[in-house]
């Protein structure tokens, strides 16, 4: 039961992110919503590789017979975090440009393109 706890956290993270994206009206908060979903997915990936009582997957220092956590999900998560930083930085800088021209960050105002 306690082993499933990270998955519950994943669902909460993604659910909060989706809620933020759908109902929060501030562009910065929308950026935070994207980051929340991203953290949920990263947590999901890293949990997949977890084995109970296992050690870090470093072959040279491992005692023989000891279980190791899976290294691949960690590599995936690391890549995903790096990409996430690029995404977040881009979203925030574009939000900055929007603020410069529109003078507001309210999603109800930032909709000159419609119809």
């Amino acid at each position: 039961m306690i082993g499933n706890f990270p998955y519950v956290a994943v669902v909460i993270f993604i659910g909060l992110g989706i809620y933020t994206l759908m109902f929060k009206k501030n562009l910065i908060k929308i950026a935070i919503g994207v980051v929340l979903i991203e953290n949920g997915v990263n947590l999901f990936l890293i949990t997949l590789g977890y084995r109970k009582g296992a050690i870090a997957p470093i072959y040279t220092q491992a005692p023989s017979g000891q279980a190791m956590v899976l290294p691949t999900p960690q590599a995936l998560t690391l890549t995903s975090i790096v990409i996430g930083i690029a995404t977040t930085a881009l979203i925030l800088s574009v939000a900055m440009m929007i603020y410069k021209h529109y003078g507001t960050l309210d999603t109800d105002q930032v909709r000159r393109l419609r119809g």
Binding site: L21, M22, F23, L27, T107, V110, R111, R112, R114, G115
Partner: peptide
């Protein structure tokens, strides 16, 4: 139909979900 295209980012992500 035109009213549906609100141009609001909340609606965009709402439709996807």
């Amino acid at each position: 139909l035109v009213k549906m295209h609100t141009g609001n980012i909340n609606d965009y992500s709402g439709w996807i979900i």
